[in-house]
């Protein structure tokens, strides 16, 4: 595994992503759901909303990094708010 040049921050990052995927897989099996139509006028399931959240969060972080000079933690706060909004309204 040495060739993969692991660091603790990246390992934690992937662990968070993996645990999110596992949690949502278990949720989908235990509590099957009906897709719903939200503000984007597209049908989404819980998994779709997680995907939209993760992809959006990546761009929020990049935009923060490129445009703002403040600490990156603030971008994570915005991501959390964004996640709540996506799961509530999309």
């Amino acid at each position: 595994m040495e060739w993969m040049a692991w660091t603790w921050p990246t390992a934690i990052f992937f662990m968070v992503i993996a645990s999110l995927l596992i949690t949502f897989t278990i949720l989908a099996i235990k509590f099957p759901e009906t897709p719903r139509v939200g503000v984007l006028r597209i049908e989404t399931t819980r998994g779709d909303r997680l995907f939209i959240t993760l992809l959006g969060s990546a761009f929020i972080n990049l935009a923060w990094l490129g445009l703002a000079d403040m600490a990156q933690w603030w971008a994570l706060v915005i991501c959390a708010v964004y996640a709540v909004l996506v799961f509530r309204y999309v």
């Binding site: 060739w3 993969m4 040049a5 692991w6 660091t7 921050p9 990246t10 990052f13």
Partner: peptide, 14 residues
């Protein structure tokens, strides 16, 4: 796995 390696590389210098 290659993509994960790329993520690891992106935060380091070699």
């Amino acid at each position: 796995i290659p993509l994960m390696t790329v993520v690891n590389y992106s935060v380091q210098d070699t």
